[in-house]
Each structure stands twice: as C-alpha cells, then as structure tokens.
Simulated assay, not measured.
Amino acid sequence: MIRVLVVEDSATMRHLLRESLAGDPELQVVGEAVDGDQAVEMVRRLRPDVVTMDMMLPTMSGLEATEHIMAETPTPILVVSSADRQELFSTYNALAAGAVDVLEKPRGDASDANWGRRLCGCVRMVSRIRVITHPRARLANRSVRTEPAPPVSIPVPAGPPGVVVVGSSTGGPGALTELLRGLPPTFRTPVLIVQHIAASEPFAVAFSDWLAGQTGRAVSYATDGVPTRSLTGRVLLAPPDRHILLRDGLVRLSDAPPRHSCRPSVDVLFESVAPEYGGAATGVLLTGMGRDGAEGLLRMRARGAVTFAQDEASCVVYGMPREAALLGAAAHIMPPARIAARLAELATATGVTR
C-alpha cells in the first residue's frame, strides 16, 4: 500500500481527495491535515509515502510546509493547486523547494471527468521518487553546508559558444533557477530550455514569468521562425506541448509525436543542435525522471559540443542525468551552480560576455 497524507483546508476538497484515493486499491489515506503546521507534524509522526499539498493554507502556507518537510522529513510531495496566479507562483516556489509534481484542482467543467484517475496516477508516480533533503529548504534554525568541489578543467572550444541548450524534468524548476542565477549579468549566449511540465496549460504558461522573476533574466516562450542571431542575452522555453528545435538559423516549433512520452522533448532539441552548431554548442541535462535527453546529449558530444549533466547528490530525481552518464554523453558531471560557473568561464574565455 502507498500511504498518503492529504493536506487541504477545504472540507469539500478533502472529501473529493479522500474519495478519489479510496477508489485505488494501492492507495491508503493515513491522515488529513487542515493547515501547514499540522501537515509538518503529521509527516513527522506518520511518515507517509506521499503528501498531497494545497498551497493556500492557514497558520502556515503550503510553501512553508513544503520547505519544512523537505528540510526535516523529506517526503515526495504532490502539489494539488488551482490555476489562480498567486497560487501558481506559490506552486512553482514549492517545486523549487523540493515538491515533485503538480496537479491542477478540478475546474468544474468537462475536464473533471477523469480527475480522480489522474490524481491516483500522479500519486503512484510520485511515490516511486526517492527525494533528498532539499538544499533550498533553509530554515531559520538550520544551515546547509556544502563542501567546495575541486576545479575541473574544461577545454575551451575553438570558437565562441553559439548556444546553450538545457533539458530538465522533475525537480527542474529549482535546478533551472540555480543554474540561471549562477550566470553573470554579462552572460549573453542564448539559452534554450525544455522543461517537462505535466500540469495543464495555465500552470505551464505562468512558468516563464516565474522563472524570470526568480533569476532576473529575460525569459519567454519561443515562437516559430525567430532567427537565432536575435536571441543574444535571452532565455527561451519550449511552449507547452510543442517541440522546440533549431534549423537553418531559425527557431522552429513542432507538433511531431512525443519522444519518450514527452512533448516537448529534450532529445528533439539536442539532436537538432548537434549538426546546427557542432562544437559551438553547450548541452546541459538536469534532474528528471526517465531518459529523455541522454541520446541527444551524446550526439552533441560526438559533434564536439561541451556537455554537462547534473550530479546525483543535487538531483531531485537522478534519472535523465544518470542515463547520460551511463552513455558517456556527459563530459562533466556537477551541480547546477558549478555548471553555471563553467558556462561563464567558457563565455569569458571566448569573449562572449557582453
């Protein structure tokens, strides 16, 4: 049995969660919390396998509760949230603090027909993830220390870096924030990102605004046909449910079938960049479940690109980076902040910082 703690202050919503979860013989609700303080205490006492977490809670918000849980009793957390803009930003903050995934609350329309089934599927998926004590969960009475890592020598490409491409999935919001924050303001190389977001379109669309606010960089969703030469200093995200790729000096969007059950797919972007940029590209594969991006990163490395994968210790889910390491696709394996430092060094060494 997968033991679930439900955290929700609305009695109506708690009833729906409880009844939906009761319909799956693999799931058992072991407790219900109505505020953040109670959630933290019940996780500590009951040690559930999964927590479903509302964001807008009394006494302590869902975000604060997530930070406490991930700092003290790391547990897979599924955020169950509405698409209200304030709640959306809290949801992404919770994902950056270590929550694993998000499911939109019922909308009150035809899309609700299979909501209970989607909830149970998300809970089962989340239960399989081995979470870590999250480095961003820094509380007033707690400090998180990291040992300095030894320097890594990275060959400087013959020409300036033309593009940085990044893939991430589960745990990605936090890793992307750390990566982009670590780049200096003078870093001008375009950054193209595929982030798997399983949530509905309102959640996904708000991600660009949230990431821009977190990092201070110009972040937007890609549009089809934009010349890559116009992207200096910008961060582009693959739009919801569209592949992004580079071809003939242009950004292209595609409705082609999913790869590894993903659209957008990291492999689609990486595989397009390999022949387009060769050794002038840099590829980065961050935390995530599955293997999307590993083969594409290998193709990039074979064409001379500098390639990175996130290390296991800093990953929420060591899936995609692990596959890249096993294939020999990642020349360098390190946490996002160190990857950012190396990217800055590459740009500085080749003169592309302003």
Rank of each mutant, 00 (worst) to 15 (best):
A341V: 03
T12V: 15
V306C: 13
D209L: 09
P202M: 03
G216W: 12
I69E: 09
P155N: 03
A344I: 11
R242T: 02
A329T: 06
T170L: 05
V100I: 11
P155V: 04
L346V: 05
R342Y: 04
I77N: 13
T170Q: 02
T59Q: 15
T189L: 04
M60Y: 03
R181I: 01
A204S: 14
L286A: 03
T52F: 02
R247E: 12
A113H: 09
A302D: 11
V166Y: 08
V219L: 04
A330T: 08
S61F: 03
P240I: 06
R322N: 02
E323Q: 08
G159D: 14
G216F: 14
A325N: 01
V268P: 04
S220A: 15
V306D: 04
S272V: 02
V165K: 04
P173G: 13
G296W: 07
F207H: 03
V219S: 02
A256T: 11
V7P: 02
S261W: 08
L119C: 15
A33H: 10
D54G: 08
V4W: 00
A97I: 15
L211D: 06
T73D: 15
L285C: 06
R18S: 15
H243V: 08
V152S: 10
S61P: 01
V6F: 01
A309F: 04
S20D: 09
V166P: 01
S143R: 13
I77Y: 08
A294P: 02
L236E: 05
I339Y: 08
P275V: 11
R14M: 08
Y277S: 04
R247N: 07
G293P: 10
E345Q: 13
A324R: 03
